[in-house]
Design a protein around this nucleic acid. Structure first.
Length: 749
RNA sequence: AGCGAGGUAGGGUAGCCAGGAUAUCCCGUCGGGCUCAUAACCCGGAGACCGAUCGUUCAAAUCGAUCCCUCGCUACCA
């Protein structure tokens, strides 16, 4: 029996938690905690809502409310969601709490005393109108390096340059629009660099860490550590506990990680044993685990250990089993991407245990994993319900119906094989779980379920019932012992249903009291069994499936020959104006008339190939239904088709042009039906368009026979699909071509 | 283009770090068994030159090199 401290990454209280959070950092620690409890260890499991920081103040301003209101709202929602998932924290705390403030401030002052913090003057934007310093994301302007517009003041997303206050051209406050001053301000910096050696020592023996965690940390340390500002000019957060520092707070990443400690202390106070936390934080024998997502690794492997080292006398992390991402429909499952599946709505439809099972068996522990409702259904129905659930039910209902109570046990030699199997599965399970290998341990449980079903079949209790009821009872007793073992081993994963099974077994007490120790002990003979009801039901979703799965909207399906090409809407047009892109070397900013009310604005990377005068007035072909995209800050609605023979070893880039004069807006669909619906760039890339000289009705590149070579210029563009080759034309004798030499087979992009 | 991950039977995967004898599991498929059970369970079959090539080795899915392809993030891709 030992103590274990389980620390869980703090979800940010600016939105509802979703399945990505659950699979990534919330469910694993709960499984691990329950596993430890069944092993007989004492667990302290803490975490909570991260409630400070600028994004919450932004939300609050948007909603015309206070940051506290926003933070509290999501704290309550998420706390409830976590409880509904049966994730049992000792305490799910929050950073906006008195104890947390005190602990953060104490650590701050301790580090200050020891010389790990120092003050540095920095420049910061200050808005006179708003009367305050502005956070980085409150100031936008033009990037001095690349000229992109509406760039945030800390970093240009367009060119990646890191910016300092004052760098931005034409800065403005996004709140009031005024031009902010650059004023001197001071901040406390954490002397991270002072911990480098100690941190290297710290990770040196961490061979049990997952390789990505260790490698990532090692790389960070090798690159050298830069001191970081740990205070900000704002009021939403933990105040800096130094006179004259009003209006400044401690920055999130110093604030939030300390939450592990403050939540432990807060919990101790709550249970009336104010020193309880010390048993976990000050006894070096207690292992500390940190369950986080992979984006959170350095905060837990470097910054937090540095803070702990600076404070001294507190346990450092023992392991940081960081998970990868749960992907949904190909995209990262995150709040910002909109593909999120938040916990409250999922739990409205499905039992927590089903969700826990699926996320466990599909956990992104070593790689990103994909979430889909289709897969959810398959795994739940075929594995959980059919194997495990059905086994539970056939055993319990058969015994209950025919015996009404627990029948007498078989003599040891009769059940030896089964008990051995339980033992060997448990060994495997235990090994995996002790290493936080959740997926594999659960697979071991499912293996036992499979073995169990086989045992049931082979021992044929339904036949024995007629021939030898006593023997039947002995077999069922053995079966029920497997049921018991399955329920105990499943409990960390699916607590609620396991407890239900426990009731049906009429053992009394709880699974937690039984523990792994009592898992294989005999059943209470003669105990009356209640009538069982299946604990897992198959999931069915005809409508739901459509709704939930169709987050990535189904596109109108174009099938058949030239499907990829027919998704394009190609139009003839005339370049009516050419300007240099203000912020890019290679890009032109064009207006192209494609027969619409006003010309399209299109950004094109052609500066290197066409001087301005050769662009102006030029007849071109435009992909008109391409999803508009910002190119270095400027919207581009479409793209010009150009041939490029790089793949053929050339270096020419030539704009496509109609062979005969056609009105702007003329459709180039080679006489086929095409779709006007909006497409992505990658959809465009799927269509195969090639340029080649044409001789005797044959497309020289690849010697492909053209289906019609009518009106064909000597060099032309063709659309290729399988073995079919068709000229790209307007269907009326104007064929797409280029006006100078290019290698045959050049692609079009 | 940069970074990250990955390419193993029709689909999805395990194994790869610590190289060895019939390559795992799930779905699907084909055949059989059973009838206690949630049309579930059990057994058996077919189906994979482990992305390609080269190398290291007595031995490579596993180690090294090169290349190809896919996905995600990022981008002066249009």
């Amino acid at each position: 029996m030992s103590k274990v401290c389980i620390n869980i990454a703090w979800p940010y209280a600016n939105g509802k938690i979703h399945l990505g959070h659950v699979a990534g950092s919330l469910l694993p620690p709960d499984i691990f905690s329950r596993y430890n409890r069944l092993t007989g260890n004492e667990v302290l499991m803490v975490g909570g809502s991260d409630q400070h920081g600028t994004p919450i103040t932004v939300t609050a301003e948007k909603e015309h409310t206070t940051p506290e209101a926003v933070a509290e709202r999501y704290h309550e929602i998420n706390k409830k969601a976590i409880e509904d998932l049966d994730i049992e924290y000792s305490l799910f705390n929050k950073t906006h709490c008195k104890t947390h403030y005190e602990v953060v401030q104490k650590l701050f002052l301790d580090l200050l005393d020891r010389g790990y913090l120092y003050i540095k003057q920095t420049d910061q934007y200050y808005c006179v109108d708003c009367g305050r310093f502005l956070p980085d994301r409150y100031v936008e302007g033009i990037c001095p390096t690349c000229g992109a517009v509406d760039v945030r003041s800390d970093q240009c997303d367009t060119c990646g340059t890191t910016l300092e206050p004052g760098d931005l051209k034409e800065p403005h406050c996004i709140q009031c629009g005024n031009v902010p001053d650059v004023r001197q301000t001071e901040h406390y910096f954490l002397r991270l660099s002072a911990f480098r050696e100690r941190l290297l020592d710290f990770i040196a023996d961490k061979d049990h860490w997952r390789s990505n965690v260790k490698t990532f940390t090692q790389n960070w340390l090798n690159e050298g550590l830069t001191d970081r500002a740990i205070t900000r000019d704002m009021t939403w957060g933990v105040p800096v506990p130094v006179d004259g520092w009003d209006g400044k707070v401690i920055y999130v990443w110093f604030d939030a990680v300390i939450g592990y400690l403050s939540a432990s202390i807060e919990y101790s106070k709550m249970i009336g044993k104010p020193d309880y936390w010390k048993e976990f934080w000050q006894d070096p024998a207690v292992k500390h685990y940190y369950f986080v997502g992979k984006d959170n690794i350095p905060f837990h492997s470097i910054i937090w250990p540095a803070i702990l080292m600076g404070e001294g006398g507190l346990n450092l992390p023992y392991d940081i089993p960081a998970n990868e991402y749960l992907m949904f429909g190909g995209g990262k499952l995150s709040k910002s991407r909109g593909g999120a599946i938040d916990v409250p709505s999922v739990l409205k439809k499905y039992d927590a245990d089903l969700v826990r099972y699926y996320l466990s068996i599909n956990m992104p522990d070593t790689h990103d994993s994909d979430f889909s409702w289709e897969d959810f259904k398959i795994k739940i129905n075929n594995e959980l319900v059919s194997d495990l659930g059905n086994y539970y039910h056939r055993c319990l209902s058969f015994t209950q119906k025919n015996f009404g109570s627990i029948p007498d046990a078989a003599p040891p030699e009769e059940s030896a094989e089964v008990m051995e199997k339980i033992g060997s599965i448990f060994k495997e399970y235990d090994e995996h779980l002790s290493k936080c290998d959740f997926k594999k341990a659960l697979k071991a449980v499912m293996d036992l379920a499979h073995f169990a079903n086989k045992y049931f079949d082979q021992s044929k209790p339904w036949a024995l019932l007629k021939s030898d009821k006593e023997a039947c009872g002995r077999v069922m007793n053995t079966n029920l012992r497997i049921v018991k073992a399955l329920a105990v081993m499943s409990w960390p994963y699916m607590p609620r249903s396991s407890e239900k099974i426990w009731e049906y077994l009429a053992i009394g007490g709880t699974i937690e009291e039984c523990g792994y120790e009592g898992m294989t002990s005999p059943l209470p003979r003669g105990a009356a069994m209640p009538e069982p009801v299946p604990v897992y039901k198959k999931v069915e979703f005809e409508d739901e499936k459509e709704k939930l799965n169709k987050v990535p909207a189904a596109e109108p399906d174009i099938a058949g020959p030239f499907a990829d090409f027919r998704r394009l809407d190609l139009r003839a047009g005339t370049v009516v104006s050419v300007q240099d892109h203000p912020d890019a070397d290679k890009l032109y900013l064009l207006s192209v008339d494609i027969g619409e009310e006003s010309p399209r604005q299109i950004v094109a990377g052609l500066k290197a190939y066409y001087p301005r005068e050769r662009m102006l007035g030029r007849k071109v072909l435009v992909v008109s239904n391409l999803k508009p995209a910002k190119l270095r800050g400027i919207m581009s609605s479409g793209m010009l088709l150009a041939a490029d023979d790089e793949d053929m070893g050339g270096s020419a880039v030539l704009l496509l042009t109609p062979s005969k004069e056609v009105p702007n807006g003329t459709k180039f669909s080679s006489g086929m039906d095409s779709s006007p619906s909006r497409i992505e760039y990658k959809d465009f890339q799927r269509a195969v368009l090639k340029v080649s000289t044409v001789r005797d009705g044959t497309f020289v590149a690849g010697s492909r026979k053209l289906e019609s070579a009518e009106g064909c210029p000597p060099r032309a563009v063709a659309v290729i699909d399988g073995d079919r080759t068709v000229l790209l034309s307007d269907g009326n004798g104007s064929v797409a071509t280029v006006d100078s030499e290019i290698r045959d087979g050049a692609g079009v992009r």
